[in-house]
Each structure stands twice: as C-alpha cells, then as structure tokens.
Computed example of a mutant assay.
Amino acid sequence: MATLHREKHVTHPAYQADQQVAEHLQQLLVDLSDLALQGKQAHWNVIGPNFRDLHLQLDEVVDAAREFGDEVAERMRAVYVVPDGSAARVAAQTSLPPFPRGEVDSAEVVDKITASLYAVVSTARRIHDDVDRADPTTADLLHTVIERLEQLAWMVSAENRVAGRSVPESIVV
C-alpha cells in the first residue's frame, strides 16, 4: 500500500493561538491533569466518616478533570498548539498543592481536594481575560471549566462546612 508524502501542507486558519494563549492553556492542562491524579489518589486512599459517599464523589471530580483536560488539549490542537500532558511536565509545572501519600482521613481529603479544585479554578480565572481578548471561543471553554469545578468544590467542601460558622460565610439574601 502506497503512502502519500507531501513536502509541505499549508492551511490558513481563521485563528491561531499566540505564545501567551498557548502557555495559558498548557498551564490549565497541567493543572487539570494533576487534579485527575490527585482525585484518584484520594479515591484510593480515603478512610473515615462518609467514606463511601466521598469515594464516589471523588470519581466525579476525576471524571470532570479528565474530560476538561481532553477538551482543553483538543482545543489547543484546534488552534495549533501542541499540548504536553506528560507526567514530567505535570510534575514540574503544576500549581496545585501536593496531595499526601498513604491513607488520608476523609475530612482532610475534603479540604485538600477542595483546595486543588480551587487552584485549578484560580488558574482558569487568572488566564481568562488574556484568553478572552485573543479568542472568545476558547474563553467559553474556560467558563465551563470554572462553573463545573466551582460547583464540585462547593459540593465537596459541604462535607466539612458548619452552618453559619464556616469561612467564607454564605451570603443570605
């Protein structure tokens, strides 16, 4: 079977990411990848009160992180950026706080996974305006990531919240 080899292929995309957008999306990909890894680490090693519910909830976090990571990487390719989701890149570049090894009490898992969810949200919010200026379509993806991860952070953190005595306080209208 003959294979066609072209010397050069030329396209003319309507939009191609610049270096800043490429770096921003790479950082978000790294953080989402680390969130998926941390979620699985927590899922395997959580012990204590509400184990089963938290065990299952962590799978929701992992699924969201993996799906968003794939969407971000595919968006990167669509705008001519080569994503790097290698373990070495994730380890070197993550902005998430580290997750402990070994068994971890469920209350600590709640706090640590919530912190990691908010770290990814912080990355998405930090890069949003630059991305939006360059490519509003890609910014729409960031909106989806922020919305879902903030929802998951709220749901996970509710395990440890105390009504009327948690920080931040809820706004009552």
Rank of each mutant, 00 (worst) to 15 (best):
Y15E: 06
W154H: 13
S95M: 13
Y118E: 15
P13Q: 07
T3C: 07
A139H: 09
L142Y: 13
P100T: 09
H143T: 15
I171G: 06
A17E: 12
V62N: 00
S166N: 05
V62P: 02
E23V: 02
R101M: 08
I171E: 08
I127K: 12
V90Y: 08
A92N: 10
Q19R: 14
R101Y: 11
S166A: 10
H43P: 07
A22F: 14
T144I: 11
A91K: 15
Q19T: 15
A92G: 03
V156C: 01
Y118P: 03
A91C: 04
V162Q: 11
N50L: 03
R161E: 02
L149G: 01
H55T: 02
I146R: 12
F68M: 04
T138W: 03
F51P: 08
A22G: 08
T3E: 15
K112D: 10
V162I: 13
E7K: 09
V145N: 10
L35T: 02
V61Q: 05
V79G: 11
H143Y: 15
M155C: 03
R6E: 14
D129N: 14
G164F: 01
I127M: 08
W44I: 02
D140R: 12
Y118M: 14
G69W: 10
S116L: 00
L28T: 09
E169V: 14
E60N: 10
A158Q: 00
T114K: 02
S166Q: 06
R6T: 12
Y15S: 10
R101V: 04
A115I: 08
I47A: 05
Q16V: 15
N50A: 06
L4W: 05
A107R: 00
L54H: 02
Q41S: 11
A92P: 07
A14H: 14
V30M: 08
T3I: 13
T3A: 13
V121G: 12
P97C: 02
L56K: 01
A119S: 01
A163F: 10
V121H: 09
V162G: 00
Q27C: 04
L54N: 00
Y80D: 15
G164K: 04
A36W: 12
P49L: 09
D70H: 09
R77T: 15
N50V: 00
